[in-house]
Design a protein around this nucleic acid. Structure first.
Lengths: 168, 168
DNA sequence: TTAAACTTTCAGAAATTATTGAAAGTTTAA
DNA sequence: TTAAACTTTCAATAATTTCTGAAAGTTTAA
């Protein structure tokens, strides 16, 4: 198999995986492409390799930068910008988890707090059930945050990684 | 605040949260509704409370059943079916993680294995980089699986939960 | 300056995904 | 049986999301 073919399979698959995780296909594909190159690529190179419009590439590369998965790089004597992926898998995972935590866990927490604070009127048993749901969910959100922190620790600590494997 | 209002806020918020995780809004809303009731609701009750068509309710309830988040219940002397949510937050999380593992992690693993097995032709350094990406990703997938298993353990073991919190 | 090289924006188009609702299917009670 | 009560299916439609590409904006070199 030609390297190009393998890369292309990887890009396609990553794109469809992204879709099912609520990440746009283009963004996931661009990410896969950049991951597969040790060095940075220019917007035009990305456009060509993934067959996307300039606007799309621009938007999604910017989004990848927001997620801290890609950074801009300038090359001496070159006018254009190059984009390089963060290549360390653990840092990638950590950045994605942190971003999702910020974007999704925090809104949930806000909602739960708001609802928990409200004095509810209505059927007593239903209220009790509803409030216990709210408090269970709040606990769960905290636990997810603990797990994210744990993951960060694991990434920086090989001993910890072995410990996890051992107790799992 | 009326209980109904709180419930409705919860349902709306859960719906939009679902969207950003690649779960259809209706499915997430129905799930939220069922979570908020201790007992089961009939298709008609769901249709009314979440304002969805019969077909949509039918499809998404079935999907929730596939995810093992909801089960059918029959009431003696009643012709229709009632749907009850799994109410234990930890079991919910576990079922979701297992389902996503099955649906998404496994296809990734298959792709990685396929690519790892292929003998690639092309620029040596690029191939090396690509292959090291593949192997990093494979390690990462395994680690995610370990983490899922760990979570299962945590759920069934309060001591473990405290341990996690302590080392996090 | 200015003009070429490059990046950004965003309205409209396209693609994808979700939803409806009516018709077909199934089950049950009488 | 049959007919009412209920569930399922799926083609058509709607809603949402993503993508395009041309125009506007910015930067740099000369």
């Amino acid at each position: 198999m030609k390297l190009e073919e393998g890369r292309s399979k990887f890009i396609q698959a990553w794109g469809s995986l992204g879709s099912s995780w609520g990440i746009s296909k283009s963004m996931a594909q661009i990410h896969a492409l950049l991951l597969s190159y040790p060095e940075g690529l220019s917007a035009d190179q990305i456009m060509e390799q993934v067959q996307l419009s300039r606007g799309n590439v621009n938007t999604n590369v910017r989004e990848l930068i927001n997620w801290r998965l890609v950074r801009k790089e300038t090359v001496l004597g070159e006018r254009k910008e190059f984009f390089v992926a963060l290549h360390d898998v653990h840092s990638i995972a950590q950045n994605i988890m942190e971003e999702r935590k910020r974007r999704e866990l925090e809104p949930v927490r806000r909602l739960l707090n708001e609802l928990k604070a409200a004095k509810l009127e209505g059927n007593k048993e239903e209220i009790e059930h509803f409030q216990s749901l709210l408090s269970d969910l709040a606990d769960f959100v905290s636990q997810m945050e603990n797990l994210t922190n744990l993951m960060t620790k694991i990434n920086n600590n090989n001993y910890m990684k072995k410990l996890i494997k051992a107790i799992s």
